[in-house]
């Protein structure tokens, strides 16, 4: 099953071709992050406008890289949600047009399912079942993954997503938008012993998260000090440590609660070095193994969408071509392929 996948749910346009026999054949991405930076956040209308400009060249690029013609594909899939409706529609309608022209089934894919399964694009993919920690600018989720289409959400953020907390705190520290990675770099210069931030919601049972308080805590800290470069680095360090420690505590609990021995970490925050070090330590202590997608597939991309579409079409899902997009879409409502 050889499938072309399109991702356009937010501010990256991604296109890829995945083959269930041969693996990932080609992928291409256009990131709009720089275009939105001067606005201090993603502007949905600008995102949609850019998707429309990038789509055709990206589809042609992956076909050329894979050395394929449309007639050699078995299906087309697209992110159908959750995400920005206007942005989702661009990829969805392009996929619909491609499917009509090539005479192929068209299947809508759940964006988060793409993230959860992205490590399966790697040479040593995790076997089912596994625990997944999804940490990005839009989501913080702990999910028990029993198999393709079998997901149970164990915990999620009650307010800011972890990447959002990084970006907002970075903004407070004068690091611009999106400043998460810059905050992590600044934290490297920080004194780990100077400040201590709380570990939100770790003093009670449960696997939910809350990160908005850390941003406020950082703001209060900043008001108490002179605000020198070192002060800001020390605050960044303490913030990052609190986030990492909180995520690790919840992952430990989830591993113990489920008895799972494989942990998948996906989403942009999964690229954070200190988080990776801490999770490696956790895994060693628990006899578990941690799986990451390569860095470029931690953030939004077309490869994960092509992967899920190919697995689902191969498993019996029918692409009926009805282009439905959803701003919100529960991960737990998904079924294994062929079930609908």
């Amino acid at each position: 099953m050889r499938v072309l996948g399109i991702e356009s749910s937010c501010d990256e346009t991604g296109v890829a071709i995945y083959d269930t026999e041969a693996g990932l054949l080609a992928h291409a991405l256009h990131s709009q992050v720089a275009a939105h930076a001067e606005y201090g956040g993603v502007v949905p209308e600008l995102a949609s406008r850019d998707h429309v400009r990038r789509m055709v060249p990206l589809v042609r690029e992956v076909l050329a890289r894979a050395g394929l013609k449309g007639a050699e594909l078995d299906g087309v899939c697209h992110t159908a949600g959750p995400g920005l409706v206007g942005a989702l529609l661009t990829g969805t309608l392009t996929a619909r047009g491609l499917g009509l022209g090539w005479g192929l089934p068209v299947l809508g894919v759940h964006h988060m399912e793409g993230h959860l399964l992205a490590p399966m694009l790697e040479p040593e993919p995790p076997a089912f079942p596994f625990l997944a920690l999804l940490v990005s600018g839009g989501h913080t989720l702990l999910v028990e993954v029993r198999g393709l289409g079998g997901y149970r959400v164990l915990g999620q953020s009650l307010d800011d997503a972890v990447g959002e907390a990084f970006d907002k705190t970075a903004k407070l520290l004068g690091l611009g938008y999106p400043g998460g990675p810059a905050l992590a770099r600044l934290a490297e210069q920080g004194d780990p012993g100077r400040f201590r931030f709380p570990r939100p919601m770790t003093d009670r049972p449960g696997l939910d998260f809350s990160f908005s308080g850390l941003k406020t805590f950082a703001l209060n800290m900043l008001a108490k000090v002179a605000g020198s470069e070192q002060d800001r680095a020390d605050i960044a360090r303490a913030f990052e440590e609190a986030v990492v420690a909180t995520l690790v505590i919840k992952c430990r609990r989830a591993l113990e609660q489920t008895g799972l021995s494989r942990l998948v970490v996906a989403g942009g925050v999964g690229a954070n070095r200190r988080l990776r070090e801490a999770l490696a330590g956790l895994a060693a202590a628990h006899g578990a193994r941690v799986y990451y997608p390569r860095i470029e597939f931690c953030t939004d991309n077309g490869a994960m969408i092509a992967l899920v579409g190919a697995l689902r079409l191969a498993g019996g899902d029918r692409g009926d071509g009805e282009p439905l997009v959803r701003a919100r879409w529960s991960l737990e409502s998904l079924q294994p392929p062929g079930a609908a």
């Binding site: 589809v59 042609r60 309608l93 491609l98 022209g101």
Partner: peptide, 13 residues
């Protein structure tokens, strides 16, 4: 954009 995206996909394919 609905018409444009649909037509882009169709014209490309």
């Amino acid at each position: 954009r609905i018409a444009i995206s649909l037509v882009q996909g169709l014209a490309l394919s």
